[in-house]
C-alpha cells in the first residue's frame, strides 16, 4: 500500500457502543465478585486454623449488613457469570464426536446449565440440612 494519509478512529468508549460488548464487560466484571467471594472463604479457612475465637469472629463479620449485601450481589453476578460461561462453552470445548457426529451446541450449553443448577441444589441441601 502506497503512503496515504489515513484517519484512525479512537477506541474510547468502545464497549458502550454495542449491547453485545456491554454484556461482555458485565461477564468479565462479574468475575471480580467471584474472586472477592473466594478470598472471603480463604480468610475463613485461615481464621478456622487460628482457633475457635478467631473462627467465631469471622462468622460474626459475615452477619454484618455490608457482608450480606455483598453476598447477595455476588450470588446474582456469579449466577450471570455461570450462565455466560455455559453460553461460550461450545466455543472452548474440545472437538468431541459422538457416534460420528459433533455434539450440538445446545447440548453443551443446556447440559452445563442443568449440571450447575443440580450441583447448586445438592450443595444447598447438604449445607442447610445435613
Amino acid at each position: 500500500m502506497a503512503q496515504v494519509k489515513t484517519y484512525v478512529r479512537p477506541m474510547q468508549g468502545w464497549w458502550r457502543k454495542n449491547p453485545f460488548f456491554v454484556r461482555y464487560m458485565i461477564r468479565e466484571g462479574s468475575s471480580v465478585f467471584l474472586a472477592i467471594y473466594a478470598l472471603i472463604l480463604l480468610v475463613g479457612l485461615l481464621r478456622l486454623s487460628q482457633g475457635e475465637a478467631a473462627w467465631n469472629g469471622w462468622l460474626a463479620a459475615l452477619t454484618h449488613p455490608v457482608s450480606i449485601l455483598f453476598h447477595w450481589l455476588a450470588l446474582l453476578t456469579v449466577g450471570y457469570h455461570a450462565y455466560t460461561w455455559w453460553m461460550v462453552a461450545p466455543k472452548t470445548a474440545p472437538n468431541i464426536r459422538f457416534a460420528g457426529r459433533e455434539i450440538p451446541e445446545m447440548l453443551i450449553t443446556g447440559g452445563g446449565m442443568l449440571a450447575t443448577l443440580g450441583a447448586s441444589v445438592v450443595v444447598y441441601v447438604i449445607v442447610r440440612w445435613m
Partner: peptide
C-alpha cells in the same frame, strides 16, 4: 483472544472464528 465472541456472531459465512481460536488454546 479474550473470547468476546462477536466475530462468530457477525461472520456472514458461519466460519465461527471464536471456536477455531479457542480450540487452539488447548
Amino acid at each position: 483472544c479474550t473470547l468476546v465472541g462477536y466475530c462468530s456472531e457477525v461472520c456472514p459465512k458461519h466460519v465461527d472464528p471464536a471456536r477455531a481460536i479457542n480450540q487452539n488454546k488447548v
